[in-house]
Design a protein around this nucleic acid. Structure first.
Length: 494
RNA sequence: GCCGCGUUCGUCUAGUGGCCUAGGACGCCGCCCUUUCACGGCGGUAGCACGGGUUCAAAUCCCGUACGCGGUACCA
C-alpha cells in the first residue's frame, strides 16, 4: 500500500483516555507498518465542551507512549491547519455546495419545535421519531418555506442549521476492514445537522471534509462510530469523493460491563487517563504492549514486543471483533516484566523522585542503585520501591506482628545479641554480604539450630518485616552503624 | 423500542471444515529452586452461549434464539 495516511482525531474535551491511546496506537502501528504518515487532528468543534489543557495533554501523552505524530498542531505539515476550529472556511464551502446540489438544506426550527415534533409522533405510535424524509416536510426549512422567505430569514441574521437531506429509501453498504460488509437502510438515519447554529460544523461534516482534504486513506476509529458511518459514506458520495477505507475498533470494556468510562474505571481503581499512568510511573512499553494485545494478536505465541516489532507485525485483519475487557493484572504483569529488564541506571531518576517525595533526601546514586537492584524483582511498579523498602531509609517504627509471633522466641534476644557483637567488630571493608552470612552461619552451627532461627529475627529487627531481599545484601547496604543500632533497639523493644 | 455490531477457559486470545482429546498468556492452585519473600523452572485448574440445519466431517458455513455492547443530539 503506498502513501498510507491515517489520523488520530481526538476531541479536546478532557485528558487523553486509555481507550483513545489505544486508538492512536493502532493508527500509529498501521501507518508505520506501511511506511505511511500519522496525523494528529484536534476536533475542537464543540465550544461548550472545550478544555484548555486537553490538547497539550494529548500531545504529551502520545510522546510519552512513544508514538510521535508526523503532522499536527505545533508540528506543521502540508495539510494544515490541524485544528478544526481553524478550518471553518472549508466546512462553509462544502455545506454550501451540498445545499446547491439539493443534498442539504437550511432549517430554522427551534429546539422546542423539534422536541414537539418528536413527542407528537411518539404519542401517535412512532417509536423512534426522526427529522427525516417525511417529517422534514412539516418543519420550518428551505424545503418547505418559500424561497423568498428563506432568503429573508437568512439575510435578517436568523439562526439556522444546515441538515443533510438523507434519501428516503436507500441501502448504504460499505466494507469495514475489521468487520467486512456492513449495511444500513437510509430510513434509519435522520437528517443529520451538518452545520450548527453557531456556524461550526458537527463531527460528521468536519470529519469527512478533513479526512478528504488531508488525504486520509484509512479511518481507524472506535466502534462507537460505526452507526454514523453510513452518514459519512453518503457525504463522500454527495461531495464526489472516494471514501477512505474504514476500520471500526472493538471497544475496551469495563470489568463491570459497559464501555470503560472514567466513572466506572475510577470505581474499580483502574487509572483511566494516560496522565495517571505517567504519574504512577508505569513503563510506557508495558502500557503499549498491553493495549496492543487488547483486541489484537500476532497469531502466534509471542506476547512481548518492542514498538519496532509491533510495527512490523501489525495488521488490521488480526484485530478481533468483540469488545475486550480491561484486565489490570495483565497490565501489572507487563509492567513487572519490563521494569525488571531496565538497568538500575535508567530507573534511578524515577526512583530518586519517589524516594525524595517520601522525604528521604541526600542518598547517593550508588546507594539508590543498589536499593533498586534489591527491590526490582519484588515490585510491580516503581512506586512500590519505597512502599516496601522504607527501611532502607528509616529504622522500622513497627514490627510486623505475625512475624514477631513466629520468629521472636524467648531465646532469640541472646542469639541476636551474639550476632550483633560479632558483626560490631567488623571493619568497613569486612562488613559485606559474604562475611555477614558466614558470621551468622557460625553462630547457628555453634548453637546447633536452624538457619532461620536467627536469620528471621535479624531480618525482623532490621526491617520490621518478615520478607524482603536477600538479608545479607540488605545489611551490607544499610551499613554497620544502622544495623547494629537497629539490632540493639529490637532486643530492647521486643 | 428501533437500527447496527458482537459472543472460544474468570480475563486477553490462537483457531478461516478434518492437524482440536481446542493451543498460548494473565490470574489462581501445587511442586522444584531458595535455610525469608520474590525472580525463575515444572505441572495443574478452567472454555467453543443455546437450538436447529448443511456436510462423510463444524469451534469453524447457514438460519433462528438468548445474552452483551454501541448508536439513536445543533457531543464527539
Amino acid at each position: 500500500m503506498s502513501n498510507v495516511r491515517v489520523r488520530f482525531a481526538p476531541s479536546p474535551t478532557g485528558l487523553l483516555h486509555i481507550g483513545g491511546l489505544r486508538t492512536a496506537l493502532y493508527n500509529y502501528l498501521f501507518a508505520k507498518h506501511h511506511g505511511g504518515t500519522f496525523v494528529l487532528r484536534i476536533e475542537d468543534t464543540d465550544q461548550k465542551r472545550y478544555v484548555e489543557e486537553a490538547e497539550k495533554d494529548i500531545i504529551t501523552s502520545l510522546n510519552w507512549a512513544g508514538m510521535p505524530f508526523d503532522e499536527g498542531p505545533g508540528k506543521g505539515g502540508d495539510f494544515g491547519p490541524y485544528r478544526q476550529s481553524e478550518r471553518s472556511e472549508y466546512y462553509q464551502k462544502y455545506s454550501a455546495q451540498l445545499i446547491q446540489q439539493d443534498q442539504a438544506y437550511y432549517a430554522f426550527d427551534t429546539t422546542e419545535e423539534i422536541e414537539d415534533m418528536r413527542s407528537r409522533l411518539q404519542k401517535s405510535g412512532n417509536p423512534s421519531p426522526k427529522y427525516d424524509a417525511i417529517t422534514r416536510m412539516s418543519m420550518k426549512n428551505s424545503l418547505t418555506l418559500p424561497a423568498e422567505e428563506v432568503k429573508k430569514r437568512l439575510e435578517s441574521g436568523e439562526k439556522f442549521v444546515v441538515r443533510l437531506k438523507v434519501p428516503r429509501r436507500e441501502t448504504i453498504r460499505f466494507e469495514d476492514d475489521i468487520r467486512g460488509f456492513v449495511s444500513f437502510e437510509s430510513q434509519g438515519l435522520d437528517d443529520q445537522v451538518l452545520l450548527k447554529s453557531d456556524g461550526l460544523p458537527t463531527y460528521h461534516l468536519a470529519n469527512v471534509v478533513d479526512d478528504h482534504l488531508m488525504g486520509i486513506t484509512h479511518v481507524i476509529r472506535g466502534e462507537e462510530w460505526l452507526s454514523s458511518a453510513p452518514k459519512h459514506i453518503l457525504l463522500y458520495e454527495y461531495l464526489g469523493w472516494e471514501p477512505p477505507r474504514m476500520a471500526h475498533l472493538p471497544l475496551i470494556m469495563s470489568p463491570k460491563g459497559g464501555k470503560l468510562s472514567k466513572r466506572n474505571a475510577d470505581a474499580l481503581g483502574i487509572p483511566v487517563n494516560v496522565r495517571d499512568y505517567v504519574k504512577q510511573h508505569y513503563e510506557p512499553e508495558a502500557l503499549i504492549n498491553f493495549l496492543a494485545f487488547l483486541g489484537w494478536s500476532p497469531g502466534d505465541d509471542r506476547e512481548v514486543f518492542t514498538m519496532e516489532e509491533l510495527i512490523k507485525e501489525f495488521s488490521l485483519d488480526r484485530i478481533g471483533k468483540g469488545g475486550a475487557i480491561f484486565n489490570h493484572s495483565k497490565l501489572i504483569w507487563y509492567n513487572e516484566h519490563f521494569m525488571r529488564k531496565i538497568p538500575e541506571e535508567k530507573l534511578l531518576p524515577k526512583v530518586r523522585e519517589q524516594v525524595e517525595e517520601a522525604g528521604y533526601t541526600g542518598y547517593s546514586d550508588e546507594y539508590l542503585k543498589e536499593f533498586i537492584r534489591l527491590m526490582k524483582e519484588r515490585a510491580s511498579l516503581v512506586t512500590d520501591f519505597v512502599t516496601y523498602g522504607q527501611y532502607f531509609f528509616e529504622e522500622p517504627k513497627v514490627y510486623d506482628e505475625k512475624t514477631v509471633k513466629k520468629a521472636w522466641k524467648p531465646a532469640t534476644p541472646t542469639l541476636v545479641d551474639k550476632f550483633r557483637n560479632d558483626i560490631a567488630e567488623l571493619d568497613e571493608e569486612s562488613f559485606n554480604a559474604v562475611i555477614l552470612k558466614q558470621k551468622l552461619s557460625d553462630i547457628v552451627e555453634d548453637e546447633g539450630i536452624g538457619f532461620g532461627k536467627l536469620m528471621q529475627p535479624v531480618r525482623l529487627a532490621v526491617t520490621g518485616m518478615g520478607f524482603g531481599p536477600d538479608l545479607f545484601e540488605t545489611l551490607q547496604l544499610l551499613g554497620k552503624k544502622r544495623v547494629v543500632s537497629r539490632l540493639d533497639k529490637a532486643v530492647q523493644v521486643l
